[in-house]
Structures are given as C-alpha cells and as structure tokens.
C-alpha cells in the first residue's frame, strides 16, 4: 500500500493511502513540514474507518474529543456517564480540550481536584469561579483579581468588564487599581470586546489621570 502526503492550502496535511499506486502518481507530494509529519500520520491512520462495524468506538480520537466537548458543555454529568462506560472513553473524556469546554457552574460544590484540572486546562467557568471565591476572602483579593485579569487577557469580555469595575469601585483595590490602570490599560483596548469595555477603558483612564494628578499635587 502506498502512502503519500499532501498539504492543503491551510497547511494541514492529509495522508492519502492508495491501494493502487498508479493513481497516486498524479498526487506528487508537496511541501510537507516534518514537524507535523508524525502527528498527521497517527491521526490519519486512525481515521481510516472500519466500514464493516462502524460504532462510536471506531471513530477517531479527534472526532470523539469534539463530540465529548459538546456533551460536557451542557453539563459534566453527561460526560461522566459516558466516561463510565469503558476505559477508552474515560481516557478521551479526560482530554484537555474536553475539560476546557466543560460546564461546571450548576453544582454548588465542586471537588477541588476537578476544579484544579479545569483551571489547568483554561476552563473559563473554572477561572471565574475561582476568581470569585478568592475575591470574597479579603486576604486573597489580589489573587482573585489575577484570575479575572488572566481571563481579560484571553479577551473574555465579561471578565474584562468586571475587572475594570472592581478596580474602579472597590476601595481595597485602590492601590491595585493604580498599578493596573497605569500599566495594563491595553487590556481594555481590545477590538473584539463589547462597547461596555470600551467605556470602562475610558473611565479607567480618566480616573488614572485624576489620581496621578492628585498625587503629584500632594507631592508638590
């Protein structure tokens, strides 16, 4: 069996396998990045279907990951049910991409270990939850804000908005506010964000200038 690689316009490589080597001659393989070669080989070979006994178990891993992330985005109990059905599916359900999209905001109590895993995978809801938890503890406000800031850096509009509001109105955030508003104004300037964030940007900037001028006045 002949193997050949072809890179399409998106630079995603497609592996063609031909039983008939005559046919393959017309597809002279082109520019192939060696770095991705190995990865492409495994994923494409996996996707060669077993037409006789198609079942959910024969689907390639990337498809199952995609399906599971949709399942998990409804709520994790669905994901757990499917994970409990066999070892292979359990492994796929533990994939980073799936956990990143998991919806976790329905249960009041979330095991710490699961929460950590979601945070490590960049799950937005987990970030927000942890951020809020920390914000309610007066000694951890700073870390809570850090979580919101991280989300803001990921262009998560609601968090950016919230981050701005908190900086502006919480007295204990005042010093942080000074620090952030002078250094991290870029956060509020993202094009993709909602107009609300743009408002925050303007307000933060105005306040920052006001504070700076006040300080200068005091010093003088």
């Amino acid at each position: 069996m002949e193997k050949e690689f072809l890179v399409d316009s998106d630079h995603t490589a497609v592996l063609y396998m031909y039983r008939d080597s005559e046919v393959s001659k017309t597809f002279i393989s082109i520019k192939m990045k060696f770095r991705t070669l190995e990865k492409c080989m495994t994923c494409s070979i996996m996707s060669l279907p077993n037409q006789v006994n198609a079942s959910i178990m024969t689907l390639p891993k990337d498809l199952l990951t995609n399906i599971f992330s949709r399942v998990a985005s409804c709520f994790v109990d669905n994901l757990f049910n499917v994970q409990q059905s066999c070892k292979y599916l359990r492994e796929i359900g533990n994939d980073d991409y799936v956990l990143q999209h998991a919806c976790i905001d329905i249960v009041p109590y979330l095991p710490l270990s699961f929460m950590e895993r979601c945070i490590n995978n960049g799950n937005v809801e987990a970030f927000l939850t942890r951020g809020f938890q920390l914000l309610t503890l007066s000694s951890e406000e700073f870390r809570g804000l850090e979580f919101l800031k991280l989300l803001a850096q990921k262009e998560h509009a609601e968090s950016t908005y919230l981050f701005g509001i908190l900086l502006l109105y919480i007295p204990s955030c005042f010093t942080l506010f000074l620090k952030y508003s002078l250094i991290d104004l870029e956060l509020f300037r993202q094009d993709k964000l909602q107009p609300l964030c743009a408002c925050i940007f303007v307000r933060v900037r105005v306040c920052a200038y006001a504070c700076v001028s006040k300080i200068i006045c005091l010093v003088l």
Binding site: S55, I56, F68, R70, C74, N78, N81, S85, C86, K87
Partner: peptide, 27 residues
Amino acid sequence: CTSAVAEAIKGKSTDEMREFFDIKSDF
C-alpha cells in the same frame, strides 16, 4: 453530525449508553 451524536449522549445513564452505542465495559 457531531452535534447529533452529542445530543444522543446527553441525558443517558451509563447503562443506557452502553446499550445504545453498543459499548462493552472493560472495567
């Protein structure tokens, strides 16, 4: 197609899932 399969998974218990998708438990 992905969302069709995802919808089918939603709301099923583990045992229902095994029957529906013909999964053999290896636990």
